[in-house]
Design a protein around this nucleic acid. Sequence first.
DNA 1: CAGTATCCCCACTGATACTG
DNA 2: CAGTATCAGTGGGGATACTG
Lengths: 106, 106
Amino acid sequence: MAADGVEEVLAVLEGRWKILILFHLFSRSVLRFSELEKAIPAISQKMLAQQLRDLERDGIVQRTVHPQVPPKVEYALTDIGQKLCPALDALLEWAALRKSSLDGGR
Amino acid sequence: MAADGVEEVLAVLEGRWKILILFHLFSRSVLRFSELEKAIPAISQKMLAQQLRDLERDGIVQRTVHPQVPPKVEYALTDIGQKLCPALDALLEWAALRKSSLDGGR
DNA sequence: CAGTATCCCCACTGATACTG
DNA sequence: CAGTATCAGTGGGGATACTG
């Protein structure tokens, strides 16, 4: 059954911030740690670092360290990460659909 | 920004079991409470009931009580719930893609 | 059959402080 | 700048028992 696939996706995308992080990487393509912090004000450094590590471990984001002082680290989607975009888009489309049906229905 | 949409989706689909439940309703169309229990052995009654209430409250699943003894309650996707299917499919496709790229890559 | 009601735990998350 | 270390709290979720 395809339920295995569901579990896979769930395991990889679970976590309060991952989809939000992916969304920002999706629309801006390359972001530094501090830029992600600014983009998602509610997230703590610890959580940002942790979720980025998870996403990196799962092969969804690419972490690039530029050997400089001060340090510069950039995050971008990997190839397979890019391919998540259509699915995230479908989710957003559905959200829009739902919102309009909610408004139209009253 | 479309980030609002992300938050919406997150709020509605959050919870360890919702997407799994939706997947089963998606493939079987109508299921009784006990059928969902069998389909998702790892879920507890409490969680199943709770997540179904959430999904019902958010207008994604339709709960139908048949006045009988013993009780019979059926769950199905609403109209807007049905429209989530393409997005879930995209997620599953991505999972398959990812799995094959993982296998092929070694 | 289809749920509630209770109790309880620990994993996720946050806040703060520190560092290469 | 880009993290790690440490401590502490909360509530999401599990186990069990009970009910219309």
